[in-house]
């Protein structure tokens, strides 16, 4: 469902992703780990279509049979791609319910489905909020406005539950969360795992992976995936740090 070949991307002329290869099938959970500055967030941003990144010629990303890189951000989302932000944006004046209804309906419309009216969507939203354990009062609050760090991340998981993407990329969703918030967010992710849904967990810490068990773990370093393995690789990284991988890569030139 996702196939990435030789992905290269630059920011302000500096190449951050330098020939990244990656593929994922439906239902798999992939963790992408790596030291600071390895290109983890750039990877998540480039897939989501964020401006400010120059994708270099020769890069290929196919998602659901389409050339992802030529689509604007909103069309990627309508195709089933979802990015949970590392730093969710506050939008005062726009309620969560209004935001999510607009998003859900634009996605439905692009797929030829009828729009949901406020009443039907309200029922749907309440159901999803209960499912991922979000307080119903959050529906009428402004998007992320005045939310704590943990509330913002839970709100990202709520959006994931409502928009039902086929590919969810979580960009350092665990960073800065205390253990209770991490547990709640992880529970949400586990509930939303399904044979039709692929997860890419971009993370700096192994801790998340003891709550959400990945099928595959990849190490990103200097803009490339330099090592892949099963969930044991994450434990090994926790134990030994990244230095041994860096040395391995750097000595091979």
């Amino acid at each position: 469902m996702l196939e990435i070949k030789d992905l290269r991307a630059a920011v302000n002329g500096v190449e951050i992703l330098r020939g990244l290869n990656f593929s994922a099938n439906a239902g798999e959970v992939h963790a992408i780990m790596g030291p600071n500055g390895s290109g983890k967030s750039t990877f998540a941003h480039v897939l989501s279509g964020k401006a400010g990144y120059e994708v270099l010629p020769g890069s290929q990303v196919r998602f659901q049979g389409r050339d992802l890189l030529e689509l604007p951000a909103e069309e990627r989302a309508r195709l089933g791609l979802f990015l949970a932000f590392q730093y969710p944006v506050e939008i005062p004046g726009v309620t969560n319910a209004n935001f999510l209804q607009t998003a859900a309906n634009e996605i439905r419309e692009s797929r030829g489905l009828d729009k949901l009216d406020a009443l039907d969507f309200g029922d749907f939203l309440r159901e999803k909020m209960a499912y991922v354990n979000v307080n119903p009062v959050m529906a009428d609050r402004f998007v992320n406005h005045g939310f704590s760090g943990g509330e913002k991340k839970r709100n990202e998981i709520l959006q994931l539950a409502v928009l039902e993407p086929s590919l969810a990329i979580l960009d350092e969703t665990d960073s800065g969360l205390d253990i209770d918030a991490l547990r709640i967010v992880s529970e949400g992710v586990n509930k939303l795992r399904s044979p039709d849904r692929t997860f890419i967990l971009v993370t700096h810490y192994q801790r998340l992976l003891s709550y959400v068990e990945p099928d595959f773990v990849h190490v990103l370093y200097k803009g490339q995936i330099v090592k892949s393995g099963g969930k044991d690789l994450a434990l090994e990284l926790e134990d030994k740090g990244y230095d041994w991988i860096k040395e391995e890569v750097d000595s091979n030139g």
Partner: peptide, 28 residues
């Protein structure tokens, strides 16, 4: 622009996103 992108990343078209942000700014 980061707010516009946040809305677009959820499937909302750019023109709708800008309208929502403008209305939200006033409605607050």
């Amino acid at each position: 622009e980061e707010s516009v992108f946040y809305l677009r990343s959820r499937g909302i078209s750019e023109s709708t996103a800008r309208g929502m942000l403008t209305r939200g700014f006033a409605e607050e």
